[in-house]
Design a binder for these strands. Sequence first.
DNA 1: CACTGGAAAATGCCGC
DNA 2: GCGGCATTTTCCAGTG
Lengths: 92, 92, 92, 92
Amino acid sequence: MTTLHAQTQQHLRRIVEQIERLEDEKKALTDDIKDKYAEAKSTGFDAKALRKIISMRKQDTDTRTQEQAIIDVYMHALGMTPMEKVWSEAAE
Amino acid sequence: MTTLHAQTQQHLRRIVEQIERLEDEKKALTDDIKDKYAEAKSTGFDAKALRKIISMRKQDTDTRTQEQAIIDVYMHALGMTPMEKVWSEAAE
Amino acid sequence: MTTLHAQTQQHLRRIVEQIERLEDEKKALTDDIKDKYAEAKSTGFDAKALRKIISMRKQDTDTRTQEQAIIDVYMHALGMTPMEKVWSEAAE
Amino acid sequence: MTTLHAQTQQHLRRIVEQIERLEDEKKALTDDIKDKYAEAKSTGFDAKALRKIISMRKQDTDTRTQEQAIIDVYMHALGMTPMEKVWSEAAE
DNA sequence: CACTGGAAAATGCCGC
DNA sequence: GCGGCATTTTCCAGTG
């Protein structure tokens, strides 16, 4: 069985620690979000509806981003180069 | 370590076989789909654009399905019962 | 905007239909598999363990062994015990 | 259609803003973690093995052992090679 | 052959 | 406590 050099081993430990630290922070935020929903619910809001609203707002943003991707794909499919693309946008 | 009764063991084997068989069939279909895209590409179609189109068509369907889900959630949030829901739909 | 020739357009439609049909069949199989797991569970089997088993069976032994060797080295470097090591694969 | 009181409406907006802010922070952390893995990979570590290690470290040993016991029984019933065997080959 | 994006699988959570 | 659902994570094909 192979063994890592002392230095590499040390490096590995640092990486693992860093990632685990970041994941802890991430989990804390996940919990905070959960708390917010619970709080909202206890104030009389419907948590599920709230989630739906927030997810819709996010999708709106994502959609806008993706719309350009679709346009790019179709333009490519029609043989238009990025250069023409710039022009067609400028001409609108 | 525990051992399964002969009958249970047999049952387990059957289940595993069945699932693996279904997964094989599923994989075959996945390959068929891949072939279709390759075929389309070789006929001059842009595969990526094709995928986009099909994914959009699927999303349209999903959206319609989800729209009702959203309505349900909001109706619930507003305290409307399923019974009222039926009525509101009938009244459109 | 470019327009497809009638014939090409027809061809495109056929392709889209075929792919969507294949995807429907694929989805049906996915549902069948889900049913099998549910059925197994209701007969007393542990669905999660079942999934793990099936996933293991479809893995190439050599690949798995190689990957485990790397994990082994990392675990050793981090001072993790053999006991944890033995169960690692199953615990995913 | 029901309308929210001005005050309630204001409250709703605050909640949505807070949640969206938390989700932004969470996403930033997700990206940081991804970066860490990429960095580790570019230093010569096996990212997949790294992920597995970290996932193992965060699991409860008792739970893991129990689940493995079930898998063990199933493997035996199916005539699969016990994990220990694989490990003795890969280790040392 | 490494990277990226998209599909599939696994996990965890919420409601009954 | 279980089933359904949403999120997260993993995997894999396609691309440069």
